[in-house]
């Protein structure tokens, strides 16, 4: 069932980087006041060491989003390694009035019987898995980054739940127990001094020839390129994808949301979005290769 761009929703994904609290607050207050987005995902996805400082801020931001008519969503950790971290997840999902994103099956299981969102770090590659998760209460899914357009179409057409596509931002490619940010600074993870807060869009990893290759964000390894699927939005709408995720970066995110809304409403040409956003994040190029089942770092011009 194809979707009318007017009915499509925009989600601001969770902030993946370790911004200082003041910067975070300013960012979210501006989003609440100015950004043309329908839902805003809050919470820490990457590293539990960043979490303790933010509980109060999230409470404040949730209220602010609600007052602004935006749906607040709380996300949860992608890799849970200890019973202490699991305890925090249990505390986070305790509020029945909030809608949550699960990035690990253990959290999806905690949310059993309640509507919830399956995040892109969970391995949903097919309709069989999605049907199983739907029986647990999941009613929205943001598909994994390496999912092709063709596979997305099959899943969207199966009509099991609302499907969201990740259309803007660096792509989380891997998560580990090891912290590469700390490693790059010769620090042990236990005494990392939060060096991940030195890079607002992640730390660039170059090849030996000095060619930018990947981005490190603590325990997460991300693409260097910035995924940008503005040109594929008409195809997504046609296949029944109804939600579009923009991932926060240290750029004018209000403008990014406006551009994508413009494409959804047919008021902005996708090429304008590509031209205006190219190189905004650390000079990194746009990419869309995964959509075409090719190398994720590639940008393929649609025929």
């Amino acid at each position: 069932m194809s979707i009318d761009g007017k009915d499509a929703k925009i989600t601001l994904g969770p902030l993946l980087f370790n911004w200082p609290e003041a910067k975070r607050r300013d960012f979210y207050f501006r989003v609440a006041d100015e950004a043309d987005v329908d839902s805003v995902i809050l919470g820490e996805v990457v590293c539990s060491k960043r979490t303790p400082f933010m509980t109060k801020l999230w409470e404040e931001v949730i209220e602010r989003m609600r007052a602004a008519g935006k749906e607040p969503i709380m996300s949860t950790q992608a890799l849970i390694l200890s019973s202490r971290e699991m305890g925090w997840m249990r505390d986070i999902v305790a509020d029945p009035g909030i809608y949550y994103e699960a990035n690990d099956i253990a959290v999806a299981d905690m949310l059993k019987g309640r509507p919830h969102l399956i995040g892109p770090m969970m391995n949903v590659y097919n309709e069989g898995t999605l049907a199983t998760l739907a029986r647990g209460g999941a009613d929205r899914v943001c598909l994994p980054f390496e999912m092709s357009g063709e596979t997305t179409a099959v899943i969207a057409k199966a009509g099991i739940m609302e499907v969201e596509a990740f259309v803007y931002g660096r792509m989380p490619l891997a998560i580990a127990a090891r912290c590469y940010h700390a490693r790059a600074y010769n620090l042990p993870k236990d005494n990392c001094r939060y060096v991940c807060n030195l890079h607002n869009d992640g730390m660039t990893v170059d090849t030996l020839e000095g060619k930018p290759f990947l981005t490190v964000n603590g325990t997460q390894t991300m693409s260097y390129t910035v995924n940008n699927l503005a040109a594929e939005i008409p195809q997504y709408l046609e296949m029944g994808v109804s939600r579009f995720r923009i991932s926060p970066h240290d750029v004018d995110i209000v403008r990014i949301a406006d551009l994508f809304r413009g494409v959804l409403l047919g008021r902005v040409e996708p090429q304008q979005v590509l031209d205006e956003t190219e190189g905004l994040v650390d000079g990194a190029p746009n990419s869309n290769g995964f959509f075409y089942d090719e190398e994720g770092l590639r940008y393929k011009v649609a025929e």
């Binding site: 890799l79 994994p144 390496e146 490619l173 891997a174 127990a177 693409s223 290769g289 994720g296």
Partner: peptide, 21 residues
């Protein structure tokens, strides 16, 4: 594997082929 297994798309980012797919 250094990354959490099954949750790594580094190979497909560079080659289009991944352990998962």
């Amino acid at each position: 594997c250094v990354m959490a297994e099954g949750r790594c798309s580094l190979s497909s980012y560079v080659t289009g082929k991944s352990p998962n797919k």
